[in-house]
Amino acid sequence: MSPTRWGPPIDVLPYFSKEEQALMTLLGALTDEDWTRPTMCAGWSVKDVAAHLLGDKVGRLSRGRDGHTSEGPRPGEPFPRFVDRINEEWVVACRRLSTDVLLTMLYEFMGQTTEYWAQLDLDVLGEPVTWAGDEPAPRWLAAARDYSEFWVHHVQIREALEHTPLEAEYAEPIADTFVRALPHTLRDVDARVGKQVGYTVTGHGKWYARRERDGWVLDRGAPPSRTPLASVTTDLDTFWRLCTRNAANLDRVRTAGDENVCAVLLGMTSIIA
């Protein structure tokens, strides 16, 4: 897999099956009361989030593997609103299913998404990853986007259940995926060519974006410049919550440099919102 303006490729294929198995082990042991517990997704229970995960899986297979074209946004409907609407419609429809039926469907489709990504050339450009830009993105970024969304919802379910945290190994690609929104996040920041900004997720890596003539380019590591335009440092738990618009403890965030650019960095969104 080749580097791009979004930085070096991310290989999430080794993580898909293990994360799915951990999720199904968790869901298979739930009580009736567990399924109804509220999650941090407003208005959604544990069952609703599990149904949303099923929708993501079958939607990926239908669009990507089977070439199925479904409805698009209504006239004048912004794309994020369209996504919110169809997600809600799916979840509401799945409330008609028993938990046994939902589990059966999850068991049926879980491994198929792993197989789908494994058979593709992940260097090839595919659909846009909209939070990373409007242009076609390499498939490895789309696969990483899918994995990161599954991981976030898995964590949300565990937190709702007050269950043990998901094993740290499953989080290894998360910071490296979400930070790929950085070039798109900085698109309106006016800086001279060569200027850099840095983002550090403690214990998980350092990244920097460098201004080129045609936009910002991401790379791993600390900024080569001793005086980056701006930099942000935080831990993974705070980082993923910031990137997904969940409540985060800003006391765990350290910033340096241009305050306006730091504010842009802290507004980075790695979901469709």
Rank of each mutant, 00 (worst) to 15 (best):
E19T: 07
T234C: 14
P228F: 09
I86K: 15
D34R: 02
G215R: 00
T227D: 13
Y199S: 08
L242A: 09
M1R: 01
G133A: 08
T164G: 11
C243P: 00
S2H: 12
T4Y: 00
V201A: 04
R252K: 08
F82Y: 15
A247C: 04
E169L: 08
G72W: 11
P138M: 08
R211P: 01
G203E: 04
G72R: 14
M110I: 03
H153T: 05
Q21N: 10
L250Y: 06
R139L: 10
D188R: 14
R226L: 11
W131D: 02
D121L: 12
R226V: 00
F79T: 13
A137H: 06
D237Y: 11
P78F: 14
T269R: 12
M268C: 11
N249D: 14
R145A: 03
S231M: 14
P223Q: 07
G72H: 14
A137K: 03
R245V: 03
G215N: 04
T164D: 09
D34V: 03
L218S: 11
D251G: 15
P128G: 05
D134E: 10
L26G: 03
G59E: 08
T36I: 12
E259T: 12
N260Y: 00
P3D: 02
G72Q: 13
V83D: 10
I271E: 06
T36C: 06
T130L: 14
T25S: 14
R145I: 00
E88A: 15
P228Y: 06
R252N: 11
R180P: 00
E127G: 06
R211A: 01
R226I: 02
L141T: 05
Y147G: 09
R220W: 05
T164E: 12
R210M: 00
W240T: 10
L54I: 05
F16K: 06
L102S: 07
A22N: 10
T39V: 09
S270L: 06
T4I: 03
D176C: 11
P136F: 06
F239N: 07
R85C: 11
S148A: 15
G126F: 10
L161W: 01
E167F: 07
A248L: 02
P73E: 13
M110D: 10
A263K: 03
L53N: 11
A132V: 00
V217Y: 13
S98V: 04
A273R: 15
L242G: 07
F178V: 04
A222D: 09
G7H: 02
D219H: 10
S231E: 15
Y116F: 10
A42P: 04
E149Q: 14
H204L: 10
P183S: 07
V49Y: 02
L23S: 08
G111D: 06
E172T: 15
I10E: 01
P165L: 07
F82G: 14
E212V: 00
T25V: 07
Q119P: 02
V253N: 04
V197T: 11
G205E: 03
S62K: 09
S2R: 13
M105K: 13
S70C: 07
P80S: 09
G133P: 04
S98W: 11
E159F: 02
V179W: 09
R74M: 15
E20P: 02
R245K: 12
V179N: 09
